[in-house]
């Protein structure tokens, strides 16, 4: 009968233990439960130690039963443990939840001035097209800035450029990068030339939202034996496509510069509205981007090339104008004003 009692005790113990497990709500009480229910003093362990007292035929059955109970309880405990763990993790994850809409901690990035960024981009495109960068002085002689470029004193073309003169009447702040045409020709003659002439230029202007006293220019110069007006169009059309998009169209119309002939203005189909018409292109669908033309024979001669043997072309553009168009800059004074709130946008 004693054996029977042990079987019963085991069964009761199992039921009670499983029930008690429901009350283990954390790691601590689960540990306590484990000590009570699976420890040395627990009913199931005592059954093992009382095994000798059981009858020989009952002994294996009792052993089996006790093992089964222990196994059930262990499994239940494991399950409980896992559940508690999961719950605790879930709670901790919930606690750690961030308001991800709070602002990020930003590094303080360095930046280049928008004028530099734009110059670089243009010079990079030109470099890919084979134009080597060539820089020349910003303070120039009248000879290089005007006379050698076929702009003699009192020529009407001098009216086109308001000049800063210095106290030395023969020295001016260059009004364009074109003196670089003469410098580069005199350096490279009689070799062919393909250069980009970038840099700061100066005009006598009252500073306003649309006018500045200094501005960058990039000029292109090509000299060779077989250079034609078709090349001016073709090369600059390629440039426009590389710069503004491969589907952009260009248009050339007659113009006048003293140092080129024939001369042209190149308009680029407005890359902001796709030619449909917008504020920036004044509803025309076209943007005036650069002036160009075949090098005037006098300029070629002044550069050291015989116009009967050589020909060439030149083109000039204002990079800041391109930035203004692209990024809707409303005031040209922003460039050299260097307000950090402007610079940080580029």
């Amino acid at each position: 009968m004693a054996d029977l009692n042990l079987f019963e005790a085991l069964a009761v113990f199992e039921i009670e233990s499983l029930k008690a497990l429901d009350d283990a709500l954390d790691e601590g009480s689960l540990q306590q439960w484990k000590t009570q229910r699976l420890g040395k003093t627990s009913v199931v362990q005592q059954v093992f130690s009382k095994m000798k007292e059981a009858s020989k035929e009952d002994r294996p059955k009792l052993g089996q039963a006790a093992n089964k109970v222990r196994q059930h309880l262990e499994e239940a405990m494991e399950a409980r443990h896992a559940a508690l763990h999961e719950k605790a993790l879930a709670a901790s994850l919930e606690r750690e939840k961030l308001d991800i809409t709070l602002p990020g901690r930003r590094p303080n990035p360095g930046r280049m001035h928008p004028a530099t960024q734009n110059m670089r981009e243009i010079l990079d495109v030109l470099a890919h097209m084979g134009f080597q960068t060539f820089r020349t002085p910003e303070v120039e002689t009248d000879e290089y800035n005007f006379e050698l470029l076929n702009i003699p004193h009192y020529h009407p073309a001098r009216d086109m450029q308001d000049t800063f003169y210095t106290t030395d009447p023969n020295v001016v702040l260059r009004t364009h990068t074109s003196p670089g045409q003469i410098h580069s020709m005199r350096k490279f003659a009689p070799n062919p030339i393909r250069v980009a002439l970038p840099g700061m230029c100066f005009r006598y202007e009252q500073i306003s939202a649309r006018h500045e006293i200094q501005f960058n220019q990039i000029e292109l110069l090509v000299v060779g034996h077989n250079i034609t007006f078709g090349d001016v169009k073709g090369t600059l059309d390629d440039f426009a496509k590389r710069m503004f998009g491969e589907n952009v169209r260009t248009r050339f119309r007659p113009s006048y510069f003293p140092f080129t002939e024939p001369s042209a203005e190149m308009d680029v189909e407005c890359f902001l509205c796709g030619g449909k018409g917008c504020n920036m292109c004044k509803d025309s669908g076209w943007l005036e981007i650069l002036g160009c033309g075949m090098i005037h024979p006098v300029v070629l001669q002044n550069g050291g090339y015989d116009p009967n043997e050589f020909s060439g072309w030149a083109a000039g553009m204002g990079p800041e104008r391109i930035t203004i168009l692209r990024h809707h800059v409303d005031d040209i004074r922003n460039f050299w004003g260097n307000d950090i709130r402007f610079l940080e946008q580029f």
Partner: peptide, 10 residues
């Protein structure tokens, strides 16, 4: 017509 330069490189 537009053309691409076919001249000796510098």
């Amino acid at each position: 017509p537009n053309s691409r330069m076919a001249d000796e490189l510098p």
